[in-house]
Design a protein around this nucleic acid. Structure first.
Lengths: 182, 182
DNA sequence: AATTATCTATCTATCAGTAGATAGATAAAG
DNA sequence: CTTTATCTATCTACTGATAGATAGATAATT
């Protein structure tokens, strides 16, 4: 028993790393912070993720997978574009409200230019995936703001505004307006 | 002549700091980076800005002042809301294109939760100012997306997408769509 | 005009703390 | 006896920050 202790521990490490990164960015997390947070030594974190780049890539890759899975299929069900975009908005809202922090994509996207190459690529892939999902979800829509780029941008920007101005309703308002114009 | 050498030097320091912050965030700039960049010693940077918090506050305060001044008045001229929002969009676009980097508000807004209290407050004030300008600029508009929060959020989010996905047209597209729906 | 004092802006040198990273020991499991 | 996962111990590099020296400009006093 306890066969996937590695996997369990790795996930615990990634949970902690994700929490720190969401709060202050990639440079605001250290191997020691994570180790102290979960009660091990920093060298043990290095065992699971030798370089910080490995850690960063793993955090964003896991997040991308989870986020896209949580959105479900953008096509198969008989849904209107509005319903699908509502689902997308709810996913962003959940991230903000559950942890009272900006989502991982927002912060790493904003820091993109200063990230190590590997991590930067992983962030780019995340956005490509989300944009692809949104494009599919919009199939058939003729609204004036029915563009994946515009919608994802608006959601992420509103999320930043929510935390930076400490007015958590900013994201809700943007979701409402996006829905009207899809 | 050369009376405000202090002010000149301070500005040079702030220019350098702003450049580094826009690339990788507040934690991605150091006193030594700045000193090396402009050819002085790190202790001289401390002379002008004793603590890193002082430096951060000065960077964002100067930026807020410049940005709002560049927007001009949101009221006095006989302009339509569309024209004013176009001016706003152009200001964001200029920041992105001139330096090929995200704007200072975007990156510090995203990092907000991890910033020192003083800097966080200054970032909040910047957003309050921009939102106030945009609200005034929208006076009389009845468009479906005529909300300061929505517009600023969309512009900033699109800017992040532009750099993170390396598709510089994302911001342009959002400006176009915003203008249609104001 | 000459002297004295103060201010400005830089430097050199150094500090304690923390960063990412690695080598090697240890222990448990199979 | 190898693999997995952890530890101790350590390294070098860099962080923000400070103390103290210095040169030059400016201002005040004699």
């Amino acid at each position: 028993m306890m066969k996937n202790q590695n996997s369990d521990r790795s996930d615990t490490i990634l949970d902690s790393a994700e929490k720190f990164i969401r709060k202050g960015g990639f440079n605001a997390v250290s191997f020691r912070d994570i180790a102290d947070d979960i009660g091990i030594k920093s060298s043990s974190v290095h065992y699971h993720f030798p370089k910080k780049t490995d850690l960063g890539k793993a955090v964003i890759d896991r997040y991308a997978k989870r986020f896209l899975e949580s959105l479900g299929s953008p096509e198969e069900k008989k849904e209107t574009p509005q319903t699908r975009i509502n689902r997308l908005g709810k996913a962003y809202l959940a991230a903000l409200e559950e942890d009272d922090a900006i989502c991982l994509g927002c912060i790493l996207g904003a820091e993109s230019a200063g990230l190590p190459g590997d991590v930067q690529e992983a962030v780019g892939s995340f956005f490509d995936g989300v944009l692809r999902w949104t494009s599919s979800a919009l199939a058939g829509s003729k609204g004036p703001s029915a563009s994946a780029t515009h919608i994802i941008g608006a959601l992420q920007g509103a999320m930043v505004l929510s935390v930076a101005t400490k007015k958590p309703d900013a994201l809700k308002e943007t979701i409402r307006r996006l829905q009207m114009s899809v």
